[in-house]
Design a protein around this nucleic acid. Structure first.
Lengths: 214, 214
DNA sequence: TAATTGACATACGCGCCGTATGTCATTATC
DNA sequence: GATAATGACATACGGCGCGTATGTCAATTA
């Protein structure tokens, strides 16, 4: 009777290891997390870990992949329910900042991840979030909402600003006030992307995208 | 004869340790840098290190403080020789990106630093760079060049975008082309800060800062 | 039923970190 | 100017955590 199939047991083991590592990495950090400790907390040993993930870095990769998949799913939901593309883009940026406020994401994805695995722009997972944002910007450019600018470049700048804003907010002594200031300034920056005609409350004109103050 | 005074010998020892650690951290990374190894390369032992810096993290703090002081000095030079405040600000941002392209800064300050010491916005040193940029933005606001926005918030967003742009550029397969795209998009974003009347090639008007598309 | 695979556990060694202790020169005290 | 005291280091010690090598036992395959 009830013995589960092999594949399922294995997947379960992997999931347990990822979950235990995710908790350990998120609470005490990657460097301080003892493999013996958190494998034991999953009812396993380091043997299982090395068998499935190769080494500690491999486990971190798996954990980050899981978190990043969740982030991507959440972003897609946010942008999908907006009325306009631009609204969806702005909402997505806001959601990005809010996610970056979560301690687990900050610690694992934003701090330990880059230190252990190298620059995030090279991760296959992280690129999915960027790619999602790039696609939105591409559409916005096609429909004429934003100026002629490289979508990926804009996406990376915007995500960079978002992430740092989140770090700043999360560590400030008054997150509420800081958040308001950050969002306001953030919207100012985003207006730099909008074509003049689309800027709310501002006069209409044709923009010459290539001329800039620098 | 020539025996140097005590204080000088001590300062020399500290400097040698910082230099050796800086080299080790910058080349193999913080985690992989063996204290026994790089203290030996400075002709010393871990005893000296623990005496002067408390622990490995203390040394990293000292290394980062040194690097950050150099960065701040370079930024001040750049912004000081510009004709206008705005030009100085833009030049400073560009210099910021260029510095973030240097492998040593990327590794020590941008990746290992945050992982080991926590969020950079809490570092006394990093705050000096931000503060420098904030002061410039404050002046720009006072003279009416940019819209009414919190200077520190804008400074953090801009530096965040700059840093991520630099990471992206440094790790791209074609840094030249990537850099061009990033700088162009970056200038677009910065235009969001400029008041309408100041935007080059664009019509003049008064701006209502509090209204944004979001 | 015998052979093989593979998912784990156990055992071992090494490197690295932090601390506790020791040594020797310099500085202060008289 | 002799002695005590401080402080800048080196040495010695213990432990922990990682990676690897090896073992075991169930599940598949033939």
């Amino acid at each position: 009777m009830g013995h589960k199939p092999r594949k399922e047991m294995i997947a379960e083991t992997r999931a347990k290891l990822v979950a235990a590592a995710r908790h350990a990495f998120g609470s005490v950090g990657y460097a301080e997390a003892s493999m013996d400790d958190f494998t034991a907390s999953a009812g396993l040993t380091r043997g299982a870990l090395y068998h499935h993930f190769g080494d500690k870095k491999g486990l971190l990769q798996a954990v980050i992949a899981e978190i990043d998949a969740e982030m991507l799913a959440r972003l897609k939901i946010v942008s999908a329910r907006a009325d306009t593309l631009w609204q969806g883009f702005v909402d997505e940026c806001t959601a990005y900042i809010e996610m970056a406020l979560e301690p687990e994401i900050q610690r694992i994805v934003l701090r330990d991840g880059p230190a252990v695995l190298g620059d995030p722009s090279q991760w296959p997972s992280q690129n999915e979030c960027i790619r999602s944002m790039s696609e939105n910007l591409q559409k916005l450019r096609d429909e004429g909402t934003i100026v002629a600018v490289d979508p990926e470049a804009a996406a990376r700048l915007v995500s960079g600003a978002s992430l740092h804003a989140a770090q700043w907010i999360a560590n400030s002594e008054n997150p509420e006030a800081t958040s308001k200031k950050a969002v306001k300034a953030f919207n100012m920056l985003l207006e730099g992307l909008l074509r003049q005609g689309r800027r709310i409350g501002r006069p209409q004109a044709t923009a010459e995208a290539d001329k800039s103050p620098a």
